[in-house]
Design a protein around this nucleic acid. Structure first.
Length: 478
RNA sequence: CGGGGUGUGGCGAAGUUUGGUAUCGCGCUUGGUUCGGGACCAAGAGGCCACGGGUUCGAAUCCCGUCACUCCGACCA
């Protein structure tokens, strides 16, 4: 069964979670290291996951009315500096271009760490009237942040992401957009990636530089640390004022539009690995798995086996699934282990005995269950099982989240719970940043979010004892 | 950026203390036998020992520097 250790190359996660993670990234052929620290090579199998994420998210964005654009990669320093909070946040981790050919540049250019400033410069040119609003743009690109430490998918110096940037005539409309996009992300995580999320608002301390409000989806990993999987920001009209973006309203008044931005990155892949993976390797959500079903022929040299394998694969492809036949000379056992390591959701075994009985074996990656199914019902059984795999993965992750979310009434209790169990700790909070800093210093936890779904745990702030305003989630974050 | 660890064929390691020109397992190639949970036999190929200096008749080994990876902090999608 799946609980047995079948892959020797991967360190057990209970032994060393970090090593397990790195082993999975490399052994499942998702990523390779390059000669530059923090810059990683997305290998075909890893990039294919991103392509599947992209395709499905992009369709959701377009349903909301967003259009794709592409902005330059370089930002002149003067442009980056127009919004004070923003530049303070990003300047420390910018990389700069200072030469063009052999000529030193008059002004240095920052390689985009994010593109708010570029979008704003452009919005200033294309927005004149309320008829030009809303503008809802998105771009798929890479950005660069000179991080001190790096880990595959979780923290790259260059990473792939999408950044949506929108402009609206009213504050209310922009706020709705911010919330809508957070919901798009949350639904995507749950329905496509099988990752349960906690939705909420970031504190002042944790919000995006230059934003008025930041909303987040927080996921819990196997090691019970938190991963911020996506963010959506409401900017108010701060950037619009800094960049002098105005439009003529219906009654011909000059007004500043209201702005949002929202993004998810290849970090989502890190989240998938750490949410669903096990000691045999990767476990991929069926909806983004590059290979959804791998067909392993048994005794493939025997008459008719390979033909049957290809025939079944073709039928599954016709029904819209991503299928691979492995007809290589490796032994069946080797193939089983290989595709388990790579997280393929379903394995189809077909051998001479099956052909006689007009059946095949379908084995689930998430729980190891095998079932014999009639070839007459292949397509429907495969689709049904893939759905069950998704649900099984979601349920398991949800259980991990629920079981490792604890309530605390005091700082000491919060600290103890985190040390003993990890996970999310819920407390009441007065809203004071001093209490947040104290929690970080004493318990090593940062605030993850102020959840939309509030519960009143008590009247008092767990840290200072003063009157509490909100319930808040704490955790150790990636 | 501070503290620790590591760097030897594609991967994992031995060799470094005590200098003498590189060893083992896996993988890879070719041929054959296998095939329902990582098969076996035989014959092969593959290494400026991370990089740059230095010491020495001679350096994987000693000295200095750099880079990368990794863990623990600080910072971050």
């Amino acid at each position: 069964m799946a609980k047995e250790k079948k892959v020797e190359q991967i360190t057990d996660m209970e032994v060393d979670f970090t090593q397990w993670y790195t082993d999975v990234c490399k052994k499942a052929e998702l990523i390779d290291y390059s000669s530059i620290k923090g810059m990683f090579i997305y290998r075909p199998y890893g990039y294919a996951i991103w392509e599947n994420i992209q395709a499905q998210l992009d369709a959701e964005f377009k349903k909301t009315g967003a259009e794709n654009v592409y902005m330059p990669m370089l930002i002149p320093e003067s442009l980056l500096q127009k919004e004070k909070d923003h530049v303070e946040g990003f300047a420390p981790e910018c990389a700069w271009v200072t030469y063009g050919g052999s000529e030193k540049l008059e002004e240095r250019y920052c390689i985009r760490p994010t593109s708010e400033t570029l979008f704003c410069e452009h919005f200033r040119n294309v927005i004149q009237s309320h008829r030009d609003l809303p503008k809802m743009y998105n771009q798929w690109c890479s950005v660069l942040r000179w991080e001190k430490t790096s880990r595959p998918f979780l923290r790259h110096r260059e990473f792939l992401w999408q950044e949506g940037h929108t402009m609206h005539a009213t504050k209310e409309e922009a706020e709705q957009e911010t919330e809508l996009m957070l919901k798009v992300y949350a639904d995507f995580c749950e329905n496509v990636l099988a990752m349960p999320v906690t939705k909420g608002r970031k504190t002042e301390k944790e919000k995006f530089n230059g934003a008025e409000a930041t909303y987040t989806i927080e996921c819990m990993m196997h090691d019970r640390k938190a991963l911020q999987a996506g963010t959506s920001h409401f900017f108010g009209d701060g950037f619009a004022k800094a960049f002098d973006i105005t439009f003529a309203s219906k009654d011909n008044k000059r007004e500043h539009p209201f702005q949002t931005s929202w993004g998810v990155s290849t970090r989502l892949i890190g989240g998938i690995i750490m949410t669903h993976g096990d000691n045999n390797g990767l476990v991929l959500p069926p909806k983004v798995a590059p290979i959804q079903i791998v067909v392993v022929p048994i005794a493939q040299h025997k008459e008719g086996v390979l033909d049957k394998a290809y025939e079944l694969a073709e039928r599954l492809k016709q029904s819209g699934l991503r299928v691979k036949v492995d007809a290589s000379e490796q032994s069946p056992g080797w193939k089983f282990a290989e595709y388990e390591m790579k997280g393929v959701p379903l394995r189809l075994e077909i051998g001479p005995k099956d052909i006689e009985k007009n059946q095949c074996v379908l084995a689930r990656r998430d729980n190891g269950e095998k079932s014999f199914i009639s070839l007459d019902a292949l397509e429907s059984c495969a689709a049904e099982l893939l759905e069950q795999v998704h649900q099984g993965m979601y349920d398991r992750a949800k259980k991990n989240l629920t079981e490792h979310t604890y309530d605390a009434e005091t700082m000491e209790e919060a600290k103890r719970l985190q040390q003993e169990h990890g996970g999310f700790i819920r407390t009441m909070w007065c809203g004071d940043q001093a209490c947040e800093i104290k929690m970080k210093e004493e318990a090593g936890m940062t605030s993850r979010c102020i959840p939309f779904e509030q519960e009143k745990l008590s009247d008092k702030c767990a840290i200072c004892g003063k009157e509490a305003k909100k319930m808040i989630y704490w955790g150790v974050a990636y």
